[in-house]
Nucleic acid binder design. Structure first.
Lengths: 254, 254
DNA sequence: CTCTCCATTTCTGTATACATACTGACCACA
DNA sequence: TGTGGTCAGTATGTATACAGAAATGGAGAG
């Protein structure tokens, strides 16, 4: 089931991918500060591959949104304001809302809906527990990602799927972006219950071909992530659960 | 919205940009058919630059959505179904709707709204004419693009602006994508009048901070492009006005 | 002491050579 | 005659050399 490329991440993967992963990890872990210029030579030293694949990796990371091209050439690490992140989440929610509406309006056969309902049921089992362990949270993150991916696919719209993938590429904008941070919050279980209610409603809406309802609930669903973000920012001690928060720069005082 | 690098295609631009423009033109003009593999060597022959910038250009065109990566390596020209295009337009409309809502809800100062009103007034002058020449249509396209660009900027959301730019990169998804095709239609003037009404309403909604209204009208506005597309497809004789239609492949379910 | 200009140095953009993986055809053998 | 394997041609992935542009630092003049 695992592709050859996935089996041996260290050796048989292209140098470009290796460089991309190494640089992404470094950026997300805060190894480079926002606004800092990252030279190709420096990246060569970090990754150990030559300039050509490094260049490729830098271009891909720009496309991903983690880097910004400097007009005179080269790249710098992108910084994000809190509002940038909130907007990215709202954006992702809007796109997922569109996907849900497409699915509902165009109709989804019972068999195609099955995988979504399965993910829903598995999530139910996790949420039903009173106290949730960190491992269970981790499982939740995986399942939640699957639910969102399956839902996106149900739109059956290649352009939309593509755009949602791009919008979710930024770690703090992805559907599972702040779930782990949430695990440290006292309200965590309530939030999970609400999120799961959203999941249930969107499935129901799609099944009954209620496009507007499906769209609205997915938008609202994304806003839970905003709430998580705000809570996480107010208890930065658990910052290690959400390394990407290093990319957030202080609100610009202009 | 055009990057500085694209502004001067003939002189002193980087080889990468030159290759990108040449290849894009070739694809859009139908010089390469959908699904056709485009090898780097072939692209070198076409563009006259060496492999490195050609490779760069291919990656950028993939990002743009005109090319598709082949798993075993290399790129092929992407094909689009009619529904892909309709979805891309709906997608763009949804994003522009979000931009309009952001502008309305967050408020726009009178001075910041001025450029939008200016574009609106200039469009009015064009639309007021009874019969519209081809030159006037061309001017309309430019002005319309400016109106949409300014409106997008009013969202003041970098992530959203970025995503709208990417969604509008495909020529048939851009706000001005089918306006030229429309010039060959008997209903052309009516459509222009309706489009301009949309423009007027969205400005009014933003001014009065009516977010939902602004969003809804921008969505509906995009659907005019869908109507234009359908009309254009039904009179393919004027296909030279809309070269990108060469990318549309026949419906798969025929 | 500060500002400006020039030289040095480093960086990116480009070209090209080399290695490896893939594709396709042709031949041999069952 | 069909199938499978091998070999050649070709494509992409990678490394590196070179040129031009940009940034940086110092020195000199005001």
């Amino acid at each position: 089931m695992t592709s050859p490329a996935e089996r041996d991440p260290e050796r048989s993967v292209s140098q470009t991918v290796r460089a991309q992963l190494a640089l992404r990890d470094l950026i997300l872990s805060g190894g480079l500060r926002s606004g800092e210029r990252i030279s190709e030579l420096q990246a060569v030293d970090i990754t150990g591959v030559s300039r050509t694949p490094v260049r490729m990796a830098l271009v891909r990371l720009e496309e991903e949104g983690l880097l910004e091209a400097i007009p005179s050439g080269g790249f710098m690490v992108k910084g994000f304001s809190e509002r940038d992140i909130v907007d990215s989440i709202e954006l992702r929610g809007t796109l997922e809302g569109l996907a849900a509406r497409f699915a509902a309006e165009r109709g989804v056969s019972a068999r195609d809906l099955e995988p979504l309902k399965e993910a829903l049921a598995e999530l139910d089992q996790l949420v039903r527990q009173d106290a949730i362990s960190v491992e269970a949270f981790s499982a939740y993150v995986t399942l939640n990602a699957r639910f969102h991916a399956v839902l996106t696919e149900l739109s059956r719209s290649a352009p939309l799927i593509r755009q949602i993938d791009r919008a979710s590429a930024l770690p703090f904008a992805s559907p599972s972006g702040f779930v782990m941070a949430q695990s440290a919050l006292p309200e965590s279980h309530q939030i999970l219950v609400i999120a799961q209610e959203h999941h249930r409603v969107v499935v129901d809406a799609i099944e009954n071909r209620e496009g507007s309802r499906a769209e609205a609930v997915m938008r609202e669903h994304a806003r839970l992530a905003v709430r998580n973000l705000r809570l996480a920012l107010r208890m930065r001690t658990k910052l290690d659960l959400m390394p990407a928060l290093a990319l957030i720069r202080a609100p610009s005082a202009d």
